[in-house]
Amino acid sequence: MTEHGVVGEWVDASGHDAASGSTDAVVLYLHGSAFAICSARTHRGLVSRLSRETGLPVFVVDYRLAPEWPFPSAADDVERAYQWLLDTGYEPDRIVIAGDSAGGHLALDLIIDNARRRVPQPAAVVLFSPLIDLTFALAERRERRRKDPMISAAAARALTSLYTRGQQPHIPRLRLAIESGTVLPPFLVQAGGAEMLVADADHLLEIVQSEAGTCVLEIWPDQMHVFQALPRLSPEADPALRRAARFIRAELGRLPSESTASSTRIETPCSD
């Protein structure tokens, strides 16, 4: 689907007619893979399961990829997609942002940009194995303690550098600088205990806490990067996705005046 400059795909296992705007809530999904590979199609399986578990339609942004489209192309496409949902008629407190890996960086950039432009924030943010530190310094420190079974920090940095080439790593939109006093939506973050980006997940928890926001961080022991997408390999994939779906439904069911639970880090999630 292409509309008003927004490219993406509706994935609906909820039984609603998402494209017609007949539902009042939606998930905006930002796929990962280092800003350079993957698409709405590659994430269709994960997103359809998320749609089924939440009972919500999901719109997956097919943002432009590096190296043909370097920074800030992907971030601009995500911003455009969020604004398009607002313009379509979705209320901000009926939109949930979700994503994995590099989609985590894009999600936090959107939240920061919303605050800067005074655009209403979404109801909540759900992230799987988010990439936050594009220098991979945090990942390298984690790697020295336990190697990631999927990829090295050096290889991941080489991929993301296709997106960030020519940019200084510490410019605000790449290091995700948050202005003091920024009001953040509630976050749920899930990361695998075996992946190097568990360090980024911890860093994101610290960022949200520093602004008095709320973030539930779940570390799933011995799981790999975005294990939620691999139900045939990981018995924990479906329980983790169900927990994410419950969080989404709970946040969408809150009144604006209601507060979320305090930030917390859970090493071993309860059985589903």
Rank of each mutant, 00 (worst) to 15 (best):
T2P: 00
E3F: 15
G8N: 07
S14W: 11
G15Q: 05
G15K: 06
G15P: 05
G15C: 04
S22M: 08
T23P: 15
D24W: 06
A25V: 04
L28N: 07
L28Q: 11
Y29V: 00
Y29L: 03
L30G: 02
L30F: 07
S33T: 06
S33E: 11
S33I: 01
A34V: 03
A34M: 07
A34D: 09
A34H: 13
A34T: 06
F35M: 00
A36S: 09
S39H: 09
R44N: 05
V47P: 05
S48W: 04
L50I: 08
L50A: 08
R52D: 14
G55N: 11
G55A: 14
L56Q: 12
V61G: 04
R64A: 03
A66E: 08
E68D: 15
W69V: 02
W69R: 14
P70Q: 03
P72S: 02
A74R: 10
D76A: 08
V78F: 12
E79M: 03
R80Q: 12
A81F: 07
Y82N: 00
W84L: 00
L85E: 06
T88P: 00
T88Q: 11
G89S: 05
Y90E: 00
E91K: 10
P92T: 00
D93P: 07
R94N: 13
I95P: 13
I95C: 02
V96Y: 08
G99A: 04
S101I: 00
G104V: 03
L106Y: 09
L106E: 08
I111C: 11
I112D: 00
N114E: 10
R116H: 11
R117G: 02
V119P: 08
A124L: 14
V125Q: 08
P130H: 03
L134D: 13
T135D: 13
A139R: 06
R142T: 09
R142Q: 15
E143P: 05
R145K: 14
P149V: 03
P149L: 05
S152V: 02
A154W: 10
A155D: 12
R157C: 01
L159H: 06
T164Q: 03
Q168I: 04
Q168D: 14
P172D: 05
R173Q: 12
R175G: 04
E179V: 09
T182M: 07
L184W: 01
L184H: 02
P185N: 01
P186A: 06
F187Y: 15
V189E: 01
A191K: 12
A191N: 08
G192R: 06
A194W: 10
L197Q: 07
L197G: 06
A199D: 14
A199T: 09
A199N: 10
H203N: 06
H203S: 09
L204C: 02
E206V: 13
Q209W: 00
E211A: 04
G213Y: 11
G213P: 09
L217Q: 10
L217D: 10
W220A: 05
P221M: 03
M224T: 11
H225I: 10
V226P: 01
L230V: 08
L230M: 15
P231C: 00
R232K: 09
S234I: 01
S234E: 03
E236G: 00
E236L: 10
R242T: 00
R243S: 15
A244T: 05
A245H: 11
R249N: 15
G253M: 08
E258N: 01
S262I: 06
S262T: 11
T264D: 07
R265E: 13
R265D: 09
T268R: 15
T268F: 13
P269F: 03
C270N: 09
S271A: 12
